[in-house]
Every structure is written in C-alpha cells, then in structure tokens.
Amino acid sequence: MSGSKRQEKGMTLIVKTITRLTVGLILLYGIYILLHGHVSPGGGFAGGVIIALSFIHIMLAYGKETAFSKLSKAKASLLESLGAILFIAIGILGFTGGYFFFNFFTDKGEAFRLFSAGIIPLCNIAISMKVGAGLFTIFVILVLLKFKTGGKDPRQGS
C-alpha cells in the first residue's frame, strides 16, 4: 500500500480529496432514501446502510480519529439504543388508537407526498438510526479488534 508511511493518517491525497467531495453526497443520498421510504423503493434499512457507509468511508480514507470525531463509538451505541427504543415507543403509541403498532395519525396525508403514510416515515427514521449506528459499530468492532495474546495478525500473510 502506498499509504504505509503515514498509516495512522489514512490513505493518499487523491482518495482523501475524492472522499471530501463525495462523502456529503453519500450522506445526503442516504437521507433521501430514508425520507422517501414510504413513497418509493428504499426505507429505513437501505437509508441506514447508506448513512453508515458515509461514516465508514471517512474512516477508510482519513483513519479512525477523524471518523470518531464525527461519530464516536459511545455516541453510535447510544443512537442504536435510541433507535430501538423510538421504534418500540412508536408501536406503544399505537395503543392510543387501540392496537399495538396502530397507525394513529388521523390525517395520513395525500398519497405520493413526503408527509403522508402516518407512522411509517417515523418508523423508517427509527430503523435507520438503529441500522446506521449498528452497522457502523459492527464495522468498527471488526476492523479495530486488538490482538492481545496468541495468534498473529492476519494481515501479515497467512
């Protein structure tokens, strides 16, 4: 790898520049997919994955410090739990209409509009929080695993 001299600081200038240009767009695209989940293909899971990818992208290009300054591990874990609790809370709020996960909005809006479909966009947001933060955490945990004793680093040949 050409970036081996400055391994802590990430990849080469080309990668960094392109990342700087694209990462915002990736994040924006993820949010778009997420918010339009109820009117077009997409939704919470797909949106969450793309949002997580934008953070993973930063981490690959700039190294872990920069990525953690945007979204630390503790914050990701917090977001993940919050997403799950938000999702359950939406389900419980359905009891106001008489049933678990009842779509309790009386005015569900007009079809093909952004503000429509009642609780489904809210569920999508909760799911994307859970999925995005969860995937980021999985990636961090798998990549940054420290080898303590025994075994050798798998990256040094096998």
């Binding site: 999985i138 945990i141 798998l142 695993l145 080898f147 303590k148 004793t149 025994g150 075994g151 050798k152 798998p154």
Partner: peptide, 16 residues
C-alpha cells in the same frame, strides 16, 4: 457479522 466476529476471535485464540 456475528460469525465473522467469532471467527476473528477464534483466530486470535488459536492462531489458525
């Protein structure tokens, strides 16, 4: 994801 994590941990312990 769970399996890969376990496989990595196994590699850490057994070295293979």
């Amino acid at each position: 994801a769970m399996m890969v994590a376990i496989a990595i941990r196994i590699y850490e312990k057994y070295g293979t």
